[in-house]
Amino acid sequence: MKKIYAFESKCLGCGLCEVYCRAAHSKSKDIIKAHKRENITSAIVIEEILQPKAVSYFALQCRHCSDPKCIKACISGAMYKDEDGIVRNKKEKCVGCLSCVLVCPFGAVRKSADGKTVAKCDLCIDYGLPACVDNCPNEAIKLLDDKEAEALK
């Protein structure tokens, strides 16, 4: 399956991916409204790498693990893998207990801003091409299958 991969050498840490991630998961689909009114949590974490003389960044989101710990830890049955292998969270079933946050080895599941559920990458399944990939100004995040990722990394 295709997943999102980040390229450290290209990431500027600008945070646009987060902005578009929020918009893609908002009702309005509008970057300003999503930010100002809807209080959406981005499913991306921007990691900072401190080097002796420079800083580099990369964006990290759910790896859609082959054997997802979050699904096994989920006490409500909200977390599941769909037919395409995408790990998703049914908001209406999630109670925000954070059992998934406790076990995600990537730290890629986050408590939602309203505290009621969690936010995680769903590859923008209801949106189209992942918004972060689509809007990265420097092509630092790409949607790749396993082989392409292996070759590039």
């Binding site: 954070l98 946050v101 406790l102 076990v103 080895p105 990537f106 408590k111």
Partner: peptide, 12 residues
């Protein structure tokens, strides 16, 4: 709690 799973993985 935000990235608790990373600690858990260090233990694991």
């Amino acid at each position: 709690f935000q990235r608790a799973g990373i600690y858990t993985d260090l233990i694991n």
